[in-house]
Design a protein around this nucleic acid. Structure first.
Lengths: 215, 215
DNA sequence: TGTACATCAGTGAACGCGCGTTCACTGATGTAC
DNA sequence: TGTACATCAGTGAACGCGCGTTCACTGATGTAC
């Protein structure tokens, strides 16, 4: 078996048109931000390994070649996308909690929101703590470092809200976050085949983790 | 730009050697079982999308060409691998629980075992309920159906053990399974970057979910 | 403030690789009579 | 029970495709003087 490949005229490249011009620094960093946000959404929804660099760039309105002007690698982008998701999510969380007067009652709102069918079905991927842990566990140290920081932030916010003695609050926060993440992930995993079970997982977990907190 | 590809002698194929012979039905189904078990382990450890058909076949001691003699597609294998994992896992679980005399105490053993560092670090991938949910949520109905059945089985076993009124037991089982799955997944996701946090997640979740069950 | 030149975001083709799947081929096993 | 023939698990090459990454090239913007 022999294959002969003759490649004619290897060094012919596209010449950009006359309307091709260098962007200002501000435009460039706006573009970078846009790509990170697109990636954050697509990664959370479909998983990091299942979304290509080209599709992120296309969804952001660019061709894929320019990707490496902004990011060292796909992993570099993933790291930035994860930390951006967590920043936004923990800000939202703090806001929701600070608007609720009674702290334990505030938590029940957050739990109900987290374990709602609209969070399960969101087409932006929802909470990064539920979207990324399996990707993180299969990836290297850089991505895990970013993920860990996000988890710590979540735990701090929950523990602050729970109050009690510091150690108990932290332990309670860990139990709560684990329960929320587990229930949401499981309910997503069965939704297409058994929506009844999916809803039951959300509803029962909601009741279970609100118990003793209400009012 | 033009590329010319000349492919010489396209139709030359390998001829099996003289020691090449048809297997008995039993050998063939033993081989099939072996491939499913190898896949189950590799899929749980690295995720379904991250393991190739060729690598599963190689790890099982075969070349990849024969794969489609046994399975309709990679998804077909994934479905069989998931259900096999659940069968084994739920059998193990029942066994562990039935050996413990007091039912609530039996559960605390299971919780401690589930949230142990050796389960987190197992190089066979461990419990399918924690290994597959994110893969399942990103896959189609066939895989989710298999996954749902496994989850139902887990919930039934937990609920039986918990006892109480039937409805409360089911709700409690959902809370417990969610917590176990969430804590294990999170602890795996931070292990490479922050082992202290990883251990804390396991330990605190263990205490949290054993509370009120001990003795 | 004006000028000369380096920088760099974007383009689209290409590279090298690995994926899931298909294929022609073999010959002992399985089976229909 | 004996015989003729179809079945089928395994092999390794190949297909077609998509991936992450690299590349040469452009010219207005950024910057050093």
């Amino acid at each position: 078996m022999m294959t002969i490949i003759i490649d004619v005229n290897r060094s012919f490249y596209f010449q950009p048109g006359a309307d091709q011009l260098r962007l200002t620094d501000e435009q460039a960093s706006d573009n970078r931000r846009l790509v990170v946000e697109t990636a954050s959404r697509m990664f959370r929804l479909h998983g990091i390994e299942n979304i290509s660099v080209a599709s992120i760039m296309k969804e952001s309105g660019f061709t894929h070649g320019g990707f490496y002007n902004h990011f060292k690698s796909k992993e570099d982008l993933a790291t930035k996308a994860i930390s951006t998701s967590f920043e936004r999510a923990t800000n939202d969380l703090s806001e929701k909690l600070s608007s609720g007067r009674n702290s334990q009652k505030g938590l029940t709102f957050v739990i109900a929101d987290y374990l709602s069918s609209s969070h399960r079905d969101t087409n932006s991927g929802g909470c990064p703590a539920s979207a990324f842990p399996v990707d993180a566990s299969r990836n290297g140290k850089d991505i895990q470092t970013t993920f860990s920081k996000g988890i710590e932030e979540y735990l701090n916010i929950f523990a602050d809200q729970i109050g009690e003695s510091e150690h108990d609050a932290r332990q309670e926060a860990i139990g709560l976050l684990s329960g929320l993440v587990g229930a949401l992930i499981l309910s997503r995993a069965v939704k297409k085949s058994n929506e009844k079970l999916s809803n039951e997982l959300l509803g029962s977990a909601r009741k279970h983790f609100c118990k003793g907190r209400l009012r």
